[in-house]
Design a protein around this nucleic acid. Structure first.
Length: 543
RNA sequence: GGUGCGGUAGCCAAGUGGCCAGGCAACGGUUUGCAAAACCGUGAUACGUGGGUUCAAAUCCCAUCCGCACCUCCA
């Protein structure tokens, strides 16, 4: 079976587009680097990383570009607030982003273009758009895109032009815009804006609007009519719609041969929250309360400031805002990784088809610790995969050549795995053969007689599927060191204490003092330490 | 109002006409000093509801209920 995917523009399942035979060109809108990302921001990179991995595994050449928006109003705002340069802010958060991506098991894209390094192409594109009659400059030195000039405007988001004109758009009169829905291609520099945030142009100093960069960068790095353009669902409109409007009049249509949009990771504060009925009533009465907002923290603080004088409803609001603030904190990927491993987050994301919404769930332990039931479950599973890989390596080290026949099992599982990924990147479906491969490996490792040839097939299959998914492909020892290290750190456990207790228990067992041995084990279990009595030694792990 | 998505076992989640998804939890077994881990097995009618088409429907059609998301800079 050949790869096919859901194209958001035609809203149909289409064959893999192929501008150049054997090669796939992919562009994904990357982050605006003004702060740390949240879990929702992680879904796209993970999904498109699997796309690139899978197509590479199919022997295709993949050219995958993901940009950094390192010139933006929000970056300037952070720079002004921190009294540092916009450049420094961008560099700091690009470094942080790369670190997060590595933790999620995302390979570095082939290309990581930046807005700041694409200025000549951006200016050239704007000049071309003005020449084509698609854009106009104002007396203030701004340039706007003339939406009315592009007949196809709205084709991606299936939005009606007239509806948008009458009901949306927030442009203010006096801005120099001809129509409310026209959007900025070039913004003139304002006096208060710092150095490093302005570039020369035919319209005076300024910086590009948000959308133009992607049109210029795809043209520059992938060429026109490249294969797949990906991104989040919220980018569909206006960002991708505007990209199409900017690219197609100048570079020719289509901008991309297929569009892939993934689903959101959703935070529902009602879910898993054990609110009292009267609190729930308040929550349900106002839909806005269910959404996380930046102003939640200040609302909470202002309510708390007059704690004594609160009405019942306001007390309910305090509980709701506390939950929202807590939720928002843990939604940040950096924070979340204090509780769960990045690889677990990745596996959790891949457990749901990329176009479906994915619920972020979190709960409270009786002891006050925060729990992430779904992601923790995923983490247990990743541990199992690494465990299995360790067992396989150990088994292979001692396995002897045999004359036993090898089976078709791993070959068939790999085929099923690839078939699922070929079908619009159905990672959740691919987890079936993925899991079966690991179960089979364990079975082989536990068997008394196993053929070396079969174990080698197993090793090959495991390497293949872990590489395609980017899950459990690393060094098992490093993984367990990382995960156990994090857990004992959180609980304030000294590993040397555990080692000593394990030795004491082994001594007791050797003396057949099972009562004492079991007592030690029970104590360790209570501290979240799991013991494994192997053939030669007892090992332990924090769970 | 516009655009789109969904309701599958205790929970999560694939599956778009006939045949086993998978994972977690539960229970039983193998193994073990006993456990854990691992493996195997079990879950008589899992497909929101009501009709219809068909030899055959979770899957197609009609109706209906419920839920969710997005709609100018948030992936």
């Amino acid at each position: 079976m050949a790869f096919r995917l859901h194209d958001s523009l035609s809203d149909a399942i289409v064959p893999l587009p192929e501008r150049t035979p054997g090669e796939t060109t992919v562009y994904v809108c990357g982050p605006t680097v003004y702060g740390y990302i949240h879990v929702g921001n992680a879904r796209g990179p993970v999904v498109f990383d699997v796309l690139a991995r899978h197509l590479t595994a199919q022997k295709r050449k993949v050219k995958y570009a993901r940009n950094y928006t390192d010139v933006d109003d929000k970056i300037i705002a952070v720079a002004l607030a921190n009294n540092e340069s916009p450049r420094a802010v961008a560099e700091r958060f690009i470094a942080a982003y790369r670190e997060e991506m590595a933790a999620l098991g995302c390979r570095q894209p082939t290309l990581e273009p930046r807005v700041s390094e694409t200025m000549p192409a951006i200016v050239a594109l704007i000049v071309a758009l003005i020449a084509k009659g698609s854009a106009y400059a104002t007396a203030e030195g701004d340039v706007y895109y003339d939406v009315a000039s592009f007949a196809d405007y709205g084709k991606l988001s299936k939005r009606k032009f007239d509806v948008q004109r009458s009901e949306y758009g927030r442009g203010k009169s006096g801005e120099g815009k001809r129509a409310e829905h026209d959007f900025a291609l070039w913004k003139s520099a304002k006096p208060h804006e710092p150095e490093g945030a302005r570039w020369p142009s035919p319209w005076g100093e300024g910086r590009p609007g948000w959308h133009i960069e992607c049109s210029a960068m795809t043209h520059e790095h992938l060429g026109d009519g490249f294969d797949i353009h990906g991104g989040g669902p919220d980018l569909k409109f206006p960002h991708h719609e505007n990209e199409i409007a900017q690219s197609e009049p100048v570079y020719g249509a289509p901008m991309a041969r297929a569009w892939m949009h993934h689903g959101f990771i959703e935070m529902d504060i009602e879910r898993n929250a054990s609110f009292a009925p009267e609190v729930l009533a308040v929550l349900r009465a106002d839909p806005e309360l269910r959404k996380i907002s930046k102003s939640d923290r200040s609302r909470l603080e202002s309510l708390k400031a007059r704690e004594a004088a609160l009405s019942d409803e306001e007390r309910a609001l305090v509980l709701i805002y506390e939950r929202k603030v807590r939720f928002a904190d843990w939604f940040q990927l950096r924070k979340l990784r204090e509780a769960v491993d990045g690889e677990a987050v990745r596996y959790w994301i891949l457990g749901t088809h990329y176009r479906s919404p994915l619920a972020f769930d979190l709960g409270d332990d009786p002891d006050g610790a925060v729990r992430f039931p779904s992601i923790e479950q995923a983490e247990k599973r990743v541990e199992y995969f690494y465990d299995t890989r360790q067992k396989l390596t150990a088994k292979l080290a001692t396995a002897k050549n045999t004359t036993l026949k090898t089976s078709q099992f791993f070959d068939e599982a790999r085929k099923a795995f690839d078939a699922a990924l070929d079908d619009d990147l159905n990672t959740a479906g691919a987890l079936d053969p993925f899991n079966k491969i690991f179960a089979r490996v364990n079975e082989l490792c536990d068997a008394k007689k196993t053929s070396r040839e079969e174990l080698e097939l197993a090793l090959e299959a495991v390497a293949y599927v872990t590489r395609s998914l980017g899950v459990a492909e690393g060094d098992p020892d490093a993984f367990f060191a990382r995960v156990t290290g994090r857990r004992i750190k959180v609980r304030g456990i000294d590993p040397r204490d555990i080692d000593a207790l394990v030795v004491a228990r082994t001594d007791a067992r050797n003396n057949r003092d099972f009562a004492r041995a079991d007592q030690i084990r029970a104590d360790l279990t209570a501290r979240g330490i799991e013991l494994r009595d192997g053939a030669s030694a007892t090992t332990w792990r924090a769970v």
